[in-house]
Amino acid sequence: MKKYILLHLLLIITFSVKAQKGRDSIIFSVDTINIYGKVIDEKGSPVKNASVLSETFDKDFNYIRTITDRNGLFKLDGIKPTDWIRVRTATTAIEKPINGSRFLLLTMVPFHPNDLNKDPAAFNITAKRISSKEKLIVKIKDTTIIYDFHPFGHTKSAEYPGGVKKFYEFVKKNIIYPQKAILKNMEGMIIIKFMIDGKGNYKDFITLQDIGYGCAEEVIRVIKSSKRWNPAVSGLTVEQSFVLEIPFKLVD
């Protein structure tokens, strides 16, 4: 009888120890979810062909990704609920945590045009006047670069190597006042808008203000011959537009 009681007690103790060990050895796993979303611009219009990238790897160890359709819609299957979603187009990029959500509405906020005439040492392109002209008082208004900051992630404006002063120096040194403009006594403000793409190259030149006789063309020629820029960053490298004002003046 004593042996039976002792054996019974040993069985109870053994079962209790195993149960305690079992409670200490629980393994947790994180399920994946399917994400639906829509990408729109600032006006609420759908953004098509935007690249949508997750942080979850597929079976080939590539990030699970897709692109938006013509209605701005996308779907990502098998994504961890703790992931961040990154969306990019040619003009901007954003990122947003999922936080367990199944549907995300993402608004793309582009970089806006920046004015390059920040430095007080703004320059004039000058040449010797050939014929006399009526004396006029010209007031030139200084402008300032305004850097817009994107609401998501790391953001940095595009930058010329060595800074904007180096860009000024190059433009001033290399622009040649067109002879036709000198003969016609043409002087005034040239305003050029251009884009720096995601690789730092120039594109999409637009003349916003001109005095004619090849002055705007000369400014664009010199800008195109300058160095490649360091592109803007908004999580990823993106495009950014700039506006440059250059006064052409004739001196007596």
Rank of each mutant, 00 (worst) to 15 (best):
I98Y: 05
Y4L: 11
L9Q: 12
R70T: 13
N117A: 02
Y213F: 10
G153Q: 00
A90R: 13
R228I: 12
L76W: 06
E55T: 14
L106T: 07
N201Q: 02
P120W: 03
N124C: 08
I12D: 07
R228H: 06
I246M: 04
V243I: 15
I85Y: 01
L6Q: 05
I67N: 11
S29D: 03
V17R: 03
M186R: 12
I85T: 04
L6I: 15
K43Q: 12
P178R: 01
P231S: 08
I94Q: 06
K193P: 00
P161H: 00
K21Q: 15
A121K: 13
E245S: 15
I98H: 03
T207M: 01
D60M: 11
I5M: 07
N174Y: 09
L6N: 06
T82M: 04
G72V: 09
M1V: 12
A19I: 13
A158Q: 02
V238K: 01
D204F: 10
Q20P: 00
K184W: 04
S157V: 15
K139A: 14
L11F: 14
F103K: 10
N99R: 14
D197T: 04
S241D: 09
H112Q: 12
N174T: 01
D142Y: 12
G198D: 02
G153D: 00
L208A: 12
A19H: 09
S45G: 13
F123P: 00
P97V: 07
V222A: 06
W84Y: 15
Q209I: 01
N62F: 12
M108D: 05
Y147T: 14
N34W: 01
G153C: 03
E187A: 10
V233L: 13
D197N: 12
